[in-house]
């Protein structure tokens, strides 16, 4: 029973944040704002789903920690992709609601 509650909790929290990330991607007005949804919410959401899987399989089949690998990988790579995408957007000077920084400091590497 306790197991079901814990697994359901992490599943629902995970699915909620995955959905929030996608909603942010779909409805926020400019690219730099859209970037926030997937990098933060979706990453945590999948982390929640993986935690649920970890608890569930540990309970029914014995220690199952390999989901941790995917979770850690996603948390390490999300900022890297976000950074590169932001850099690409700054290079293209995509329009933004916040005033863009001057070209001299943006988009160069």
């Amino acid at each position: 029973m306790l197991l079901e509650i814990a697994v359901s909790f992490f599943l629902l929290v995970g699915a909620f944040f995955t959905l929030v990330g996608a909603i942010g991607l779909a409805r926020l007005p400019d690219f730099y704002m859209r970037l926030h949804g997937p990098t933060k919410a979706t990453t945590l959401g999948v982390g929640g789903t993986l935690t649920a899987s970890m608890i569930y399989f540990t309970a029914i089949e014995g220690t199952s920690l390999h989901e941790l690998l995917i979770t850690l990988f996603l948390f390490v790579t999300a900022p890297v992709s976000a950074n590169l995408l932001a850099r690409a957007a700054l290079r293209l000077r995509l329009r933004s609601r916040a005033p863009l920084p001057e070209a001299s400091s943006a988009g160069r590497d």
Binding site: T18, A22, T43, T49, L94
Partner: peptide, 25 residues
């Protein structure tokens, strides 16, 4: 724009990971 589409692909594959893990459970 192009970065939007790349970001959408990124979100797609991360959500696909969630879907597969869900199917596993």
């Amino acid at each position: 724009d192009l970065p939007d589409r790349i970001l959408a692909l990124d979100t797609l594959y991360i959500s696909a990971v969630a879907l597969i893990v869900l199917a596993g459970i």
